[in-house]
Design a protein around this nucleic acid. Sequence first.
RNA 1: GGUCGCGUAGCUCAGCUGGAUAGAGCAACAGCCUUCUAAGCUGUGGGUCGAAGGUUCGAAUCCUUCCGCGAUCACCA
Length: 606
Amino acid sequence: MSVECPNFASQMKQADISRELRAATAKAVKTLFNADISDSEILINDTRKEFEGDYSIVVFPLSKLSRKSPEATAGEIGKYLKDHYDIIEDYNVIKGFLNCLIKTQRWIEVFEAREKTNDFSKSNGKKVVVEYCGPNTNKPLHLGHVRNMVIGYSMANILEAGGYEVHKVNIYNDRGIAICKSMLAWQKFGHGETPESSGLKGDQLVGKYYVLFDQQYRKQVADLIKNGHNEDDAKAATPLLLEAQQMLRKWESGDRETIRLWETMNRWVYAGFEKTFETLGVDFEKNYYESEHYLSGKELVEEGLKKGIFFRKDDGSVWVDLTDRGMDQKILLRKDGTSVYLTQDLGTANSRYQDFEMDLSVYVVADEQNYHFKALKGTLEKLGKPYASGIYHLSYGMVDLPSGKMKSREGTSVDADDLMQQMFDTAEEHTKALGKIEAFSEQQAQVLYRKLGLGALKFHLLRVNPKRRILFNPEESIEFHGDTGPFIQYTYARIQSILKKWESMGKPGNNDDKSNTLENIERFILRQEIAFSKVIEEACESMDPSLIASFTLNLAKLYNRFYNEYPILKAKDKSVLFFRVRLSEQVAKTIEQAMLLLGIEVPESM
RNA sequence: GGUCGCGUAGCUCAGCUGGAUAGAGCAACAGCCUUCUAAGCUGUGGGUCGAAGGUUCGAAUCCUUCCGCGAUCACCA
């Protein structure tokens, strides 16, 4: 059974003039020069603003087929197009570029088609799981997690717009030595402190003891060094570290008291994380816990051994040889039979496939783990797992401070909750300074500050290519002017203001009022509008939300130029007024959709 | 040392599978609100696209070498 539902992408394609032009050019080449060329081989650019035209066909490659000069070739193709396609108003040739001016009528038709396709609904029949966040449970979330979450959440939205059925999941690294350090410090120095008794968010409370552990630990190391130990010995021999290791062993052997403490403190952390997720506006369909999976993956190792893909060394440890893929040998089981990181991820990948049977599995994880994911994928491929090829590591660069890497235990990391609060405060300052929201209730104002603060923060993180490192200077606050989230939000709010005013005017204009002129800037806006679906496709293919960010920024810039240079509600001609209102409305819709793909909300006024 | 990534204006970044005189924002300077929201718009200055070769009609983009920065190559996760 198949349901015919409007497919955003395919309808948009019908309204894609550059695609029409490409097909027409291929036909022209066939007719004029009797040469075959596929549509995709024809390169079409937006005409640069210093020349007349909407789209430019790059003719250099075609002159090989015509055996004429680029200019002559362009001239012939231009004439053919103008004679045979009524979408061409005129053309001109400059060097090897054929600049085509599209008829106003065609632009209007395309615009009307665009107006009708404002939702994405058609599925591509594929499932994707997006794993993001992946925190340790011994400390609160920091700016690095924020970048991760914002990328993951946005990429999930973009994939959904691209037709995927999307499942967002989180993985909690809830066991190991790190959480034991927090537990031990709390046990020794906490005096029974709880989130309730201290008023601290649970994750902040647990993080406090993680930092405290490190401080006490350093003190002990210093003492040992003073008493004649060398540094390496001292680091390994402090009573605190030995105790933490002891605690980890007790945890692994299932010691009831240790497990109970671990459960309690993790519960605090999860409650704290939930608040941060809610404030940031991200969510997960399912949570995975390392504590439930760290033993799994062993069956896969058995399977690999049986198939002869893995091998056992003399000491009993099990390895996979990835040298044929330019990697090394990787250990899978220690000689005592315990599993390592890679083994665990083998196990989680497997159970994830049992849970979702996804076609694609996206892991949003920092680029320090590039090698690990290459090894994971390579190992699963060797095992012949059906989901191996669908593994995609969405690798992003870490966030640095001017002083270097963020380190939670040294207290140098930028706390996610603090940062968001700071953004809200800054948004409030800016807004109050402008004094445009007197009509707002306190409640409405708070909602606005949150939208603007998050808009600024998320856009700042998403507008750069994920694989780039980001330098965050706490001394310089994130901008609200220029190429920013609030600038785009402002553009949206401005349009809403126009639309409201238009309504209060009694909505002058109707569909009989056909405009037959377009300003250049209006054509530029339309050209940008109809590129949206292609940008979504590209963002899916390259797993890169920054493409959406650039697109949206450009659209907002074009609109603001238009807004500043031309009257909309004050246009003299009613048909022009009506068209400009509709164009504005459409731009607002696109901005809203695009921003939602980034996980950013837009305000009705600001 | 091996592998991978990055290097574009003072700063932060765009630049699609090679295409026109390399584009924005910030910062600096000069303009634009009795007119639809000035978180806006316009203009000016600012570049040997890390370096050198190569491929091409054509290179920031592709190839090679080199320089600089980072990550990784853990029986940590």
